[in-house]
């Protein structure tokens, strides 16, 4: 759902850009105080994975494709603020190196996929995860978080198009949310698969259980 240039009017682009810049600034500030040196390469790898996976469009319905967003995955693995930086880095490279997403629309894309996807995805993961610390519950929480992150990004994208006068709410909302409800299922499957890979190779990163909890779950 990378917005190209031409879809948004100037006011919407500038407003979205200002919010996105504030969020990225705050994320950097929040991390400055406690960036774990061990997590620096993990951030880089998460970004490389999100970039790679975003290239792999999978077919959904009726001649439409979708690809991983990765916002929920990054937030689950790294926490929300590091995830905002990961998603922003991916979007910046996509925009300026590959012309995927307009340069003027970059702020809106960061806002939709970076900030909104990450924060709502993380909030979903955290609240569903409160039910139980069992790993099975965390997988369910992750699937839901991935779906919510895609829908939240698509919802905000719709409103930017509506405010810009590009599309009418009664047509763009059902069209965008309908197709992204399907893409979100793919998002959930890939997110859960990626987490399963991490949990097998680095359970300290995810699900990050205490040794006593690991024993308890066996």
């Amino acid at each position: 759902m990378h917005i190209p240039d031409g879809f948004l009017d100037l006011q919407t682009s500038v407003a979205a850009g200002a919010i996105a810049a504030g969020a990225v600034g705050y994320a950097s500030y929040a991390l400055r105080r406690r960036v774990d040196p061990e997590k620096i390469p993990v951030m880089g790898v998460a970004g490389a994975f999100v970039f790679a996976a975003q290239m792999i469009n999978f077919p959904v319905a009726g001649g439409t494709s979708g690809h991983l967003l990765g916002a929920a995955l990054a937030a689950i693995l790294l926490g929300p603020w590091a995830a905002v930086l990961v998603m922003t880095a991916v979007l910046v490279i996509q925009c300026f190196v590959f012309q995927d997403g307009g340069a003027l629309a970059l702020g809106a894309n960061v806002l939709n996929m970076g900030l909104m996807g990450v924060l709502l995805g993380y909030a979903t993961y955290a609240s569903v995860g409160k039910v139980s610390r069992r790993v099975r519950v965390r997988y369910v929480a992750s699937f839901l978080a991935a779906w919510v992150a895609v829908m939240a990004g698509a919802f905000l994208c719709c409103w930017e198009l509506i405010i810009s006068g590009t599309a009418a709410p009664q047509v763009v909302l059902p069209a965008m949310l309908g197709v992204h409800a399907l893409i979100g299922v793919g998002e959930g499957v890939i997110t859960v698969a990626a987490l399963a890979l991490v949990s097998r190779s680095r359970p300290d990163i995810w699900p990050a259980l205490e040794p006593a909890e690991v024993a308890q779950q066996k």
Partner: peptide, 25 residues
């Protein structure tokens, strides 16, 4: 990182050429 690079290089040519959700809408 190697796994990510393999995904980026080996799988990307097989991506679906269909328009994505926003393009389609």
């Amino acid at each position: 990182l190697v796994v990510c690079l393999v995904v980026a290089a080996v799988l990307s040519p097989f991506a679906s050429p269909w328009p994505d959700g926003l393009e389609r809408v």
